[in-house]
């Protein structure tokens, strides 16, 4: 990890103005992400994880606080931060190949046609999409669409990858294949990743650090360093340490789920989360 951080979030808050008043969604999130780190954000669904990611992507602006990429404040979306959305967002009117090359045809990152072809072909091969270059997305399975979306984001060579539950809709086998493929790509290309997930197992298997956030509004509950060495392999799942960590982490996350259920049961308090934890840490 280099001295200068890739990504800095400093006391970031986000609130939405709803019909019933101000709704805080993200509260006081501070986080520093170094070059090559893989950060997972984990917490109850609907807690504001995606909002954090959208703010890093530049799709939403924080109500207060600052977000920096390589020391510069985030003004909007940019090709330096590739985003993988939960619903893939593969363009149905373009073929697999045109989807992958889409970013490379935009003025922001335009390159020569031959280079474009080459890059697209490389990712088609890497993602196991050979034979489907000219297929329209309607003929693809969910796993394949996800691979097209990944390739499209990789192709523009964004050094930061933001992923919002990218494998949530896949079955267990496809999911595990995609996780391994992601690790493989990261090994060869070295990217900084922020992943939003609700799977403790996925977070443990992929990340260097795991950020557990609270029920709405999302605050950082705790940050866990993942002790496993890279490169990681499937066998890691079977190690005793992995099992223990998974159990511990799940306990923490389950408490947040329970808290969220209680919040929903009561009538959401607009004043913010009443939780204060002694083990709360800030990066």
């Amino acid at each position: 990890m280099t001295a200068s951080p890739r990504l800095v979030l400093d006391t970031v808050c986000k609130q939405f103005e709803g019909p019933s008043g101000v709704l805080p969604v993200v509260s006081d999130v501070s986080l520093t992400v170094g070059e090559g780190e893989f950060i997972s954000i984990i917490g109850p669904s609907g807690c504001g994880k995606t909002t954090i990611l959208n703010m890093i992507a530049g799709l939403q602006r924080p109500t207060s606080g600052t977000l920096l990429v390589d020391g510069r404040p985030i003004a909007g979306p940019g090709a330096d931060r590739g985003v993988i959305f939960q619903d893939y967002g593969v363009f149905p009117w373009l073929t697999v190949k045109d989807n992958i090359a889409f970013g490379l045809t935009l003025r922001a990152n335009r390159i020569a046609k031959s280079d474009r072809e080459q890059i697209a072909n490389r990712y088609i091969e890497l993602m196991g999409l050979t034979g489907f270059e000219n297929a329209y997305p309607k003929t693809l399975s969910g796993g394949m669409k996800q691979r097209v979306a990944l390739a499209r984001a990789y192709a523009i060579k964004s050094s930061i990858l933001l992923m919002d539950e990218p494998f949530g809709a896949l079955d267990a086998q496809a999911r595990s294949a995609m996780q391994n493929l992601l690790l493989e790509v990261l090994r060869s290309e070295g990217k900084t990743v922020v992943l939003v997930t609700h799977s403790v197992e996925e977070a443990l298997y992929l990340s260097t650090r795991i950020v557990v956030v609270t029920a709405r509004p999302a605050r950082i509950r705790t940050i866990v360093d993942v002790p496993f060495e890279h490169p990681r392999h499937e066998e890691l799942h079977r190690s005793q340490r992995f099992g223990e960590l998974q159990y511990e982490l799940r306990e923490v996350v389950m408490r947040e789920y329970a808290m969220q259920a209680r919040l929903r049961g009561e009538d959401v308090r607009a004043s913010g989360s009443p939780i204060t934890h002694r083990e709360e840490r800030r990066a």
Binding site: A57, G58, L59, G76, P77, G78, A79, R81, G82, V83, F85, G89, F91, F102, G103, L106, R107, A108, N109, R152, A153, I156
Partner: peptide, 8 residues
Amino acid sequence: RVARTLGA
């Protein structure tokens, strides 16, 4: 949104 994040 996808196109925006790709730099469109």
